[in-house]
Nucleic acid binder design. Structure first.
Lengths: 142, 142
DNA sequence: CCTCACGCTCTCCTTTCGGTAACTATGGAA
DNA sequence: TTCCATAGTTACCGAAAGGAGAGCGTGAGG
């Protein structure tokens, strides 16, 4: 691997010391958790369960919209693994499985709340920024 | 496509009406923005710039850790396009480019703050949930 | 002359994402 | 008997993510 962080010479010639407030090992773990949790489908399922309460597989699918069975299965399995939700199988026929957020999942939902609010408040700005960028690009190319 | 949301019969047999508080078109746009912005590298770069101020390419790379040049280039370009940061090229040799968050970027950083705090507070819980899940899996298989 | 620095870009490669379709089990309905 | 419903699993496929490593341009330092 030729990653930047692995070149000690760069580290050595920092002119100002890095403001290390947290343990780098902890930070790596946090970054890892962020990476796993900052997933589109995870966020969408999380929000769906937050506002829908206990839901079945197809109910989540319908509410999220545009997700395939495969990805929904994978997403809820991962969330179950991470302790964000519980999966309850009722041994009846036809199968009945329902999903509910755990306390951990609800707390993550609350944490993501700010991002939802941001997105609702600023999506128009993002779109206009993209238009402006495209125009600058076109002007630069032409 | 065989997505759940496209089957009207499922829609028809909902026993309780969906609590439609927002325009579905707006919601789709918001989901789109969420999808673009809820990216691992975007979040990491955002946090780096938030606490580092104006930084150069390699400084971001070093601070983020584990990102390849390719992905960093792509991530900052996308963030520039979305109006989250500004990219300033100084025409000197060797090249000098620096990156700074815009107001929009800072506001997104603030919104993500809750997620960072959550991750720092709960990463241990996530890890223990994973261990427990693996054990349950192993017990189920054995 | 050679080398290094920086911020890329490019190619090559593997892994993951994600969709489609077919299949599973099973009790009840037609 | 055949079909249906649910919650998947599996196989197959193309697209995209993402890493490795090389190269580029050019001025300063050796």
């Amino acid at each position: 691997m030729k990653r930047f962080a692995e070149d000690p010479s760069i580290e050595a010639k920092r002119r100002h010391p890095p403001p290390q407030t947290v343990d780098p090992a902890i930070e790596a773990l946090v970054n890892d958790v962020i990476g796993q949790v900052a997933d589109k489908w995870t966020m969408l399922v999380l929000e769906t369960l937050e506002e829908g309460g206990v839901l079945r597989f197809t109910e989540i699918a319908r509410a999220v919209g545009g997700i395939s069975q495969k990805m929904l299965t994978k997403t809820v399995r991962q969330m179950e693994r991470d302790g964000l939700l519980t999966r309850t199988v009722h041994p009846v026929v036809p199968p009945h499985v329902d999903y509910a957020l755990t306390e951990l999942g609800r707390s993550l939902g609350a944490a993501f709340c700010g991002v939802w609010i941001w997105a609702e408040a600023h999506y128009a700005e993002v779109e206009s920024a993209r238009r402006a960028f495209r125009e600058r690009e076109a002007a630069g190319a032409g």
